[in-house]
Amino acid sequence: MARLSLNKASLHKESAKLKRYRQYLPSLDLKRRQLMAERAKGLARLKNTELQIEQCRQKVSETLPMLSYREINLNNLVKVSGVEIGEENIVGVNVPVLINHNLALMAYSPYLKPHWVDALVVRLKIMLELKLRQQVDRQRLMILEAAVKKVTQKVNLFDKVLIPKTERNIRKIRIYLSDAERADVVRAKMTKQIRIKQGV
């Protein structure tokens, strides 16, 4: 750590640093608040998606109790064939967005499968869409939480460390310069009195 120089140049440098820190802190704090608002929205969206998933499960268990009959092959009726995920920039943080998804339905004979398989396929489609949305929502939330943590650390660094330290340095330099100036004045007066006594 460099030793603090107690001179006017150092005072000017520390004052400029303090000014920069004070200009940067409000925008950083605003970014933190915006990210926290987005995180709250993301959490609400995730909870809503998870609620819809639970409601879909309940509906399936209520309307399709015949699923417990294991003799009918219900595997691979609906598959995810493609997912397109984009990016959205929120206050300088890139988060994923579900743009598009394709679900492939397996062809099956209505004569070989029971009539309720059609209703099951519809429910499976809805559930897969919700699960994809849930994955993206979780990823968004994780990224936003990390961003909030990082920006909060920066805000705390400026607010609790850099600004107070710079203010202390400025105070220290000013006191030193003030004492030095007072000592110069006293020395000048004493020199003048000595000269007067010596008759110079």
Results as ranks from 00 to 15, higher is better:
residue 153 Q to M: 12
residue 27 S to N: 09
residue 62 E to T: 12
residue 190 M to E: 15
residue 97 V to F: 06
residue 165 K to F: 14
residue 41 K to W: 08
residue 159 D to A: 09
residue 50 E to K: 08
residue 23 Q to S: 05
residue 104 A to E: 13
residue 17 K to N: 10
residue 101 H to D: 01
residue 96 P to Y: 10
residue 74 L to N: 04
residue 12 H to L: 10
residue 127 M to L: 15
residue 2 A to Y: 09
residue 178 S to D: 15
residue 27 S to Q: 11
residue 64 L to E: 01
residue 132 L to K: 10
residue 87 E to F: 07
residue 49 T to M: 05
residue 61 S to G: 02
residue 76 N to E: 12
residue 141 L to F: 14
residue 192 K to I: 07
residue 189 K to D: 13
residue 32 R to H: 02
residue 148 V to Q: 06
residue 15 S to C: 06
residue 135 Q to H: 09
residue 30 L to S: 07
residue 197 K to Q: 14
residue 63 T to M: 05
residue 134 Q to Y: 13
residue 166 T to F: 04
residue 42 G to D: 02
residue 70 R to P: 03
residue 199 G to A: 14
residue 57 R to Y: 06
residue 187 R to V: 14
residue 17 K to S: 09
residue 14 E to S: 10
residue 147 A to Q: 04
residue 161 V to W: 05
residue 177 L to G: 07
residue 95 V to S: 05
residue 163 I to N: 01
residue 25 L to Y: 02
residue 2 A to P: 12
residue 90 I to V: 13
residue 108 Y to A: 00
residue 86 G to M: 03
residue 165 K to Q: 14
residue 92 G to R: 05
residue 50 E to M: 07
residue 127 M to D: 06
residue 130 L to Y: 04
residue 75 N to Y: 06
residue 109 S to E: 03
residue 124 L to G: 04
residue 190 M to K: 15
residue 39 R to N: 03
residue 24 Y to F: 08
residue 31 K to A: 01
residue 124 L to V: 11
residue 192 K to A: 14
residue 14 E to F: 07
residue 73 N to I: 02
residue 57 R to E: 09
residue 110 P to Q: 08
residue 6 L to K: 14
residue 24 Y to S: 04
residue 39 R to D: 01
residue 19 K to Q: 11
residue 137 D to F: 07
residue 103 L to Y: 01
residue 118 D to V: 10
residue 33 R to E: 08
residue 42 G to S: 11
residue 115 H to K: 14
residue 105 L to C: 01
residue 118 D to Y: 09
residue 81 S to V: 07
residue 1 M to V: 11
residue 92 G to C: 07
residue 52 Q to R: 12
residue 96 P to W: 09
residue 178 S to H: 15
residue 4 L to V: 15
residue 194 I to L: 15
residue 136 V to P: 00
residue 98 L to S: 02
residue 91 V to W: 04
residue 50 E to W: 02
residue 114 P to I: 08
residue 196 I to E: 12
residue 184 D to C: 14
residue 166 T to A: 03
residue 116 W to F: 14
residue 83 V to N: 00
residue 108 Y to M: 01
residue 18 L to T: 05
residue 35 L to C: 06
residue 33 R to H: 06
residue 198 Q to N: 15
residue 11 L to D: 05
residue 87 E to K: 12
residue 10 S to L: 00
residue 4 L to W: 02
residue 197 K to L: 13
residue 151 V to H: 00
residue 79 K to N: 13
residue 7 N to F: 07
residue 148 V to A: 05
residue 35 L to I: 06
residue 114 P to H: 10
residue 103 L to F: 02
residue 51 L to S: 15
residue 23 Q to N: 06
residue 56 C to A: 12
residue 106 M to G: 04
